[in-house]
C-alpha cells in the first residue's frame, strides 16, 4: 500500500545529523520503501547522507511517501519521531 503524509520539522535544529541517524535507524526496520520529499528533491529515508543533504530546517514541510507491506506502521513510527523532536530538548 502506498501512503503519503505531510510532516513538518518542528525541532529547533532541523534535520541535523543525530536526527537523521535516528530516522535511518527507524526506517531500516521496515521493508517498505520510505522517501522524504521537499522542493522537488526526494531522498531515501534509509540514507543518512541523503537526509542530511535535504537540509530541512525547523518549519520545513516534507512529504513522506511510503510504499510496501508495512507502510502504515512505518508512517506511524516516522511521524512519531518527528513529533518527539528526535529527542531534542528545546
Amino acid at each position: 500500500m502506498k501512503l503519503e503524509r505531510e510532516i513538518e520539522v518542528i525541532n529547533r535544529l532541523g534535520l541535523h545529523a543525530r536526527a537523521c541517524a535516528s530516522l535511518v535507524k527507524a526506517a531500516v526496520q521496515f521493508s517498505s520503501t520510505i522517501a522524504l520529499k521537499h522542493d522537488g528533491q526526494s531522498c531515501d529515508a534509509k540514507s543518512i547522507m541523503g537526509l542530511m543533504m535535504l537540509a530541512a530546517t525547523q518549519g520545513t514541510r516534507l512529504t513522506l511517501v511510503v510504499e510496501g507491506e508495512d507502510s502504515q506502521q512505518a508512517v506511524n513510527r516516522i511521524v512519531e519521531l518527528f513529533s518527539d523532536r528526535f529527542g531534542e530538548e528545546e
Binding site: A17, R18, C20, A21, S22, V24, K25, I48, M49
Partner: peptide
C-alpha cells in the same frame, strides 16, 4: 549517537 552518526555515514 555521535559515533552512530559516523557509522551510518
Amino acid at each position: 549517537a555521535f559515533v552512530d552518526v559516523h557509522l551510518q555515514m
